[in-house]
Amino acid sequence: MTALLVFVGAAVGAVSRYLTDRFVRSRHDSVFPWGTLTVNVVGSFVLGCVAGTGPTWTALVGTGFCGGLTTYSTFSFETVRLLEDGRHRQALANVVVSLVAGVAAAAAGYLLTR
């Protein structure tokens, strides 16, 4: 049953990531990876909210949805691509903002629900 919860959550999360990225890209004419930053920060917040809940919510929302929504590999690849394009400041900003905002969002979600 737990694997099914993870599967359903991940399916919804992955589709949400795709749609969010498309929406954000349509609003920003920029090489900066705003879509990936958005889903990673939102996912961090949601995971902070469900941290410490029961195993059902953790499987469905924490592992499944947040796992499908967020993407470390795309964040890494987009940072490398910025570096290859000579956009060193944007690459550094992507790393710093992603880490700081992600941790802050997770903390905020956790504090909000405790």
Score class of each variant (00 low, 15 high):
Gln90Ser: 11
Thr58Ser: 15
Ser26Thr: 06
Arg81Tyr: 01
Thr53Leu: 13
Leu69Lys: 04
His28Trp: 12
Val80Met: 14
Trp34Asp: 06
Ala51Tyr: 13
Phe32Lys: 08
Val46Trp: 00
Trp57Ile: 03
Ala3Ser: 15
Ala14Arg: 00
Ala108Gln: 01
Val97Glu: 00
Gly35Asn: 06
Asp29Leu: 01
Val39Ile: 15
Thr36Val: 14
Ser30Asn: 12
Leu19Gln: 09
Val39Tyr: 01
Val6Met: 09
Phe32Tyr: 15
Thr38Phe: 14
Ala11Phe: 14
Val12Asn: 03
Ser30Leu: 06
Ser44Gln: 04
Val50Thr: 03
Leu83Gly: 05
Ala91His: 10
Gly102Val: 06
Ala107Ile: 09
Thr63Asn: 02
Cys49Phe: 10
Ala14Glu: 01
Ala91Ile: 00
Thr36Trp: 07
Ala10Trp: 06
Leu99Met: 10
Ser30Arg: 02
Val80Ile: 14
Thr38Pro: 00
Ser98Gln: 10
Leu60Asp: 07
Trp34Arg: 09
Thr113Lys: 00
Val24Phe: 10
Ala91Leu: 04
Arg25Ala: 11
Arg114Val: 02
Leu37Thr: 04
Ala10Thr: 15
Ala101Ile: 03
Ala51Cys: 08
Phe75Trp: 15
Ala3Val: 14
Ala107Arg: 02
Tyr18Lys: 07
Val31Gly: 09
Ala105Met: 05
Ala104Cys: 12
Val12Ile: 15
Thr63Gln: 03
Val41Cys: 02
Arg114His: 08
Asn40Lys: 11
Thr63Tyr: 05
Thr71Gly: 04
Ala106Asp: 02
Val100Ala: 15
Phe32Gln: 09
Ala3Phe: 13
Thr113Arg: 08
Gly13Arg: 06
Phe32Thr: 08
Asp21Val: 15
Trp57Arg: 09
Gly48Glu: 05
Val97Phe: 09
Gly109Glu: 01
Tyr18Thr: 08
Val41Phe: 04
Arg89Ser: 10
Phe23His: 08
Thr56Leu: 11
Glu78Cys: 13
Asp21Asn: 13
Phe75Ala: 14
Leu5Val: 03
Val15Asp: 09
Val12His: 02
Arg27Cys: 05
Phe77Leu: 14
Ala108Gly: 14
Ser76Gln: 13
His88Ile: 13
Val96Pro: 03
Leu47Arg: 03
Ala108Ile: 01
Leu19Phe: 11
Gly35Cys: 10
Thr38Asp: 00
Tyr18Glu: 08
Ala93Asp: 02
Tyr18Ser: 10
Cys66Phe: 11
Gly67His: 11
Leu111Glu: 09
Ser16Phe: 04
Gly52Asn: 12
Leu99Ile: 13
Val100Ile: 12
Trp57Phe: 14
Thr36Asn: 11
Ala101Leu: 12
Gly67Gln: 10
Val24Tyr: 09
Gly62Thr: 07
Pro33Asn: 07
Ala108Asp: 04
Val39Ser: 02
Ala101Gln: 01
Gly62Lys: 04
Phe32Glu: 07
Thr74Phe: 15
Leu60Val: 03
Ala93Trp: 05
Leu92Trp: 15
